[in-house]
């Protein structure tokens, strides 16, 4: 039994922790739409909402009663996320939630970033994947501490898993924590991890209309990175149109264009990280006076 929250056995596995946590994610269904016609409509619809006092049950007439809940479905996750955010804030940690499709170059961007910033900043990484510890091993090869979370059948990290990962990872005060989410442009949008910013990474080998195909993710992100720009001469990718689509779903989104392979444009990303960290450190002058970590 877990001492943090009392959760039991499950599917998600955090490296170095022998108990898992699946109770939020038993994604056993693969093709819900194939079944919806047999299951979707067989409810009685006895209580149409907004059509008169259908559920105004008079006391004594029935044993049934109404209970007002008025609670956000994601409230449990939001509580875990709020606890994580408090932890990050108390320790002056900049936490970034990196989200993208599989294969956008997240891990490569991360390894390059780590190699070029590790002498300047204290860094650590949480890697989310359904299976394997390959990505955490790629990160650890840079000499920075990394922890793998395998979500098993789950399609996203949640606030609860990240809270647990904190107990093993113990990121340093004033450090930068990268959380590489499961490659998926749908589900991670809804699950707050307590991060300061979501960063959406889109590679130019994908469609320029991804921001409007997956609007929730680009709406939830503060920064969009267009990666693999070294390949633009060989592609029909329309950068301006892509940025325009991103601004349609999120007028305030910032955009950086870079190539994690060639290094073109990557200094802008480092400047963005430094600036975001300085904002976090405004509450911790003791940590950031020099802008450097010991």
């Amino acid at each position: 039994m877990c001492t943090v929250c009392g959760c039991g056995e499950g599917e998600a596995k955090i490296e170095g922790q022998d108990h898992g946590h699946d109770h939020d994610h038993p994604h056993v269904h693969q093709h819900p739409h194939e079944h919806s016609h047999t299951h979707g409509h067989d409810h009685g619809h006895r209580h149409h909402y907004g059509q008169g006092p259908a559920h105004a049950h008079a006391p004594g007439m029935s044993q049934s009663r109404m209970v007002q809940i008025e609670q956000d479905i994601l409230s449990k996750n939001n509580e875990y996320a709020a606890a994580n955010r408090r932890f990050f804030s108390d320790h002056g940690i900049l936490a970034l939630n990196l989200v993208s499709s599989p294969g956008s170059g997240k891990t490569m961007l991360l390894t390059r970033t780590i190699n070029e910033l590790k002498s300047e900043l204290e860094l650590s990484v949480i890697e989310g994947d359904q299976q394997t510890v390959n990505d955490a091993e790629r990160i650890r090869a840079t000499g920075v501490q990394a922890l793998q979370i395998n979500t098993g059948k789950g399609c996203h990290l949640d606030g609860h898993m990240v809270g647990h990962a904190m107990h093993s990872l113990k990121p340093a005060d004033g450090s930068v924590l990268f959380i590489e989410n499961v490659g998926n442009l749908v589900c991670p949008a809804a699950f707050d991890l307590g991060e300061a910013h979501k960063v959406a990474i889109l590679s130019v080998t994908e469609g320029e209309d991804k921001p409007i195909k997956y609007p929730d993710m680009f709406h939830a992100s503060d920064l969009m990175i267009l990666n693999k720009t070294d390949l633009l001469p060989y592609l029909d990718f329309d950068v301006e149109r892509c940025i325009e689509y991103a601004r349609r779903v999120n007028p305030g989104i910032r955009v950086l264009q870079l190539s994690a392979k060639s290094g073109e444009g990557i200094q802008g990303w480092y400047q963005w990280i430094r600036a975001a960290r300085q904002l976090v450190l405004t509450d911790h002058p003791e940590l950031g006076a020099s802008g450097l970590c010991a």
Partner: peptide
């Protein structure tokens, strides 16, 4: 895609 997760949360509530 994450509807089952949401339903788990509803059950918890």
């Amino acid at each position: 895609m994450h509807e089952v997760s949401l339903c788990e949360s509803i059950l918890q509530v």
